[in-house]
Design a protein around this nucleic acid. Structure first.
Lengths: 210, 210
DNA sequence: AACGAATTAGACCACCAGTCTAGACCGGTG
DNA sequence: CACCGGTCTAGACTGGTGGTCTAATTCGTT
């Protein structure tokens, strides 16, 4: 995950490398991105690149993590889901998710990278690297889930890991679907509401049927 | 999609190529699979391979399609979702989904390939090839959805394309989660029931809240 | 100034997907 | 039989890839 040496570089040089890598990865995804092109665009030599990063995966992971952190910095930390009842839980979640999507829509490169992440993450060779990034995202999901269960907004009759996996899958699907739609900032809140409504249906405690 | 010439080969030679390709793709996914290895394992020359297939994508698509067809042949066609009420719709869906998963569990290579498909399918360069396979899978989902709406099992206040995308995402997530679990055929029905229950929550018509 | 560590340059390696040409094979025809 | 044209095969070759390695350079410290 980026040799410490890298951080000692003058910021503008770090920036040049990061920017080149971001553009390449955003444009081509992980697999089809060319490290040689990044090297050329950044104006450094191959030796330097491998001096600062362990390899392509390492660079990708670092760029993704950096951009990811930038996103959360921009949007701010997740709200405190513990305060209130089930109803406020779901509306807080909806608000926060909408903010994330809005921020994502505003920086297409970041969006393209994060989108590629989920595909790349399925490659087993990737998963050790992935762990580091996932540990930045999954915990707040775990906490939100636990909070949701405490306030009675989320069912507890299924394993938490299953709920998380399915929630991520739904989120990814939503993202995919939004991409395929004509861009229309006006309608985003409605779409987000639709998705959260589906999540609510899936994850809310079962009401007894009679 | 496999030059017609390929079909004129003696079956055992077709089989050798297909088997080699299946093993390679199942083991390494599309991107990291090596066509050279397939060629070597199949005992043919590069010239022959490119004589029978347009390239790596073409081979992959053909193998995936073939295996996919085999799966549906094994499980049988989807039931008629139109007969009955919402309750029977959901239980028929659960049955069918469980059968698919059981068949998939019995042939790990096929499972590995289809798993890789969803990742590969996101690559834009792949989507023209993908169309052909997707036309075999999405229509029955569309029909099931339409049938579900007719019998009142599925909401119609959201775009069908969104429902389909989210359903696929949930299914994929379920699959991912199952893979991470210790293999236990006994508990599969319960897991499937859990997933279908979540889908039902997400896709059932909203009950008026009061 | 001199030494050793940090850094850079880029040649080199094995491998990749895909192209291309030379020839082997084979059925039909004169 | 000889020849011919299409079908098929072999594998050298191309331009690219990610990654390694060594020699040279720069730089901080004594």
């Amino acid at each position: 995950m980026a040799r410490p040496r890298f951080l000692k570089l003058p910021p503008h040089q770090q920036q040049a490398i990061l920017q080149a890598a971001l553009e390449e990865f955003a444009a081509h995804g992980f697999h089809d991105a060319s490290l040689n092109r990044v090297i050329e665009a950044a104006g450094i030599s191959k030796g330097s690149m491998y001096y600062y990063f362990d390899g392509k995966e390492d660079l990708y992971a670092y760029v993704a993590q950096t951009e990811f952190a930038g996103l959360f910095e921009q949007v701010g930390p997740p709200p405190d889901f513990d305060a209130g009842d089930a109803e406020t839980f779901w509306s807080a979640l909806e608000d926060y998710y909408r903010q994330l999507l809005q921020a994502l829509a505003a920086s297409p490169q970041l969006a393209a990278m994060l989108r590629g992440w989920s595909a790349a993450a399925k490659n087993p060779a990737f998963q050790e690297v992935q762990g580091e990034l996932e540990q930045a995202s999954v915990p707040w999901i775990e906490q939100a889930l636990a909070a949701g269960q405490r306030v009675g907004a989320i069912r507890d009759d299924l394993p938490a890991s299953l709920l998380i996996t399915v929630a991520l899958g739904m989120g990814e699907a939503m993202d995919l679907w939004l991409m395929s739609q004509p861009v229309d900032p006006e309608s985003l809140p409605a779409h987000v509401h639709g998705l959260i409504d589906m999540m609510r249906g899936a994850f809310a405690p079962r009401r007894p049927v009679h």
